[in-house]
Design a protein around this nucleic acid. Structure first.
Lengths: 146, 146, 146, 146
DNA sequence: GTGGTCTAGACCACC
DNA sequence: GTGGTCTAGACCACT
């Protein structure tokens, strides 16, 4: 069961954080079609945010076609975002796991690690083709934050 | 000169995006002590957001001691967040550059790449001690988003 | 300026009524691209529903790409649903105007008139082709109520 | 036998859709006094909604005096809403049938057709006296949606 | 007991 | 002054 972590004080709305974390779990295959999301009540118990805020996030996810809210039953995944190449045992996964371990061992913080990857993405996308970007973290569209 | 990219429609407040991007540039050494940030006017011209929003972000950065607003002159970096190990020509940088290129070549999107790194960070931090986290993207503190 | 009428006690959520009425106005060309919707405050003054309920409806319309919410400015139409054949002076419009007048003159209520049209639509769609329906008023998809 | 079509995702409660469709069938004479409504079980089989939801709708219809629930026997129509002028072979019916066919032939969708009629009703009722309305779809009273 | 709507009011983001 | 988020709590729809 996905376990949301809300960073109050990050300036990012709580419902956006839930949407982002859910999408990330879908991309990684941690959540699969048919899986049940925690009930609003469970999220409230775990995060101390308001049930309405959770429902707002779930409604957003429903409108993008990723989940389905079934009254009386719960909220269920209806679409996967899993990518070939991102599986748990793929070469890319194994490589990034090692790289992250080395970076952490060198004393880099979580934010440093993410900054390096973002910079690498920016550089790559600027050199190759279509959609260049300079320093931005902003997605080309909504939900491009990871 | 840093070039902000604002993703309207991501749900993340514009001023937060500016702060995040600035901190990322500081971590990567793209911005150094003494460097001048673009004026609010320049940012407005480039992003079509309101000057007050830019100033709000700069004020936040000033309060965390990263920049200094000098009236009539501009906004200047006063503190670096650069890390040894994250330099442009460090092994870690070279490795991540290659890894990102391979991931992109396999068809993974920007969001997939960031999701994989976040998952690797979560896994690492869960196994090794201090700051465990499960699925969260949220930083331990404010501004830990990359 | 569109003038929403909320039927409390119809069982239909207020925000759905706002969405339906807005879409209808778009189909009829009463609202055009660039037009401003009333502010939440104005709707509240006119209908005595809560501002959050209005915003919920506007958010829904935004997510279907019909309007854009601009903070500090208001809510604006971004896409038309106008159909050739439904213009104010089209033959179809003139015919239906006359027909409605005759129906009303014969003592039929508003609900009778709409029931007749719905029945005619059902009969037509059942005979011709693809998507038959019997008695339903329900749309093939969301927002098919008029 | 009336055949309910529930549009899940329209935002309109299922029991309201059943009530609306039943009233429409009564107005059109598709259901007559003494006719039996489908059992909750039959509706469930056809629509995949919960039996309690069907019963809730039938109870509403009973309270408005349109049907009678006879335990062990079923639900029966006790009052007609049929209107002279709305019969199957009336001039008005023939006219609207032709008009609908032309509208559909011109490529108008179901929702366009209903929007045009609603607009015509609004215009008519605004000009002629008693019950003016501008853009609304809402009925003067409960259950005035067609 | 699930999700869903609505209300009320406080505070924030943006123009 | 606009829309936006979040909270709190009441009541409803549905399984």
């Amino acid at each position: 069961m996905i376990d949301y972590r809300i960073d109050r004080g990050s300036g990012v709305p709580a419902y956006v954080q839930i949407v982002e974390q859910t999408e990330r779990a879908l991309r990684m295959g941690f959540l699969k079609v048919g899986d049940k999301l925690p009930t609003a009540k469970e999220v409230v118990a775990a995060t101390a945010i308001n049930p309405n805020t959770v429902l707002r996030a779930y409604r957003d996810l429903e409108q993008t076609g990723l989940v389905e809210l079934r009254r009386g039953l719960g909220t269920f995944v209806t679409r996967s975002l899993a990518r070939p190449g991102a599986e748990d045992d793929s070469p890319l996964r194994r490589e990034v796991t090692g790289w992250v371990a080395r970076a952490r061992a060198e004393g880099l913080e979580r934010a440093d690690v993410l900054a390096m990857v973002t910079a690498a993405l920016d550089a790559h996308d600027n050199e190759h083709d279509s959609h260049p970007r300079a320093t931005g973290n902003a997605g080309r569209r909504t939900h491009d934050r990871a």
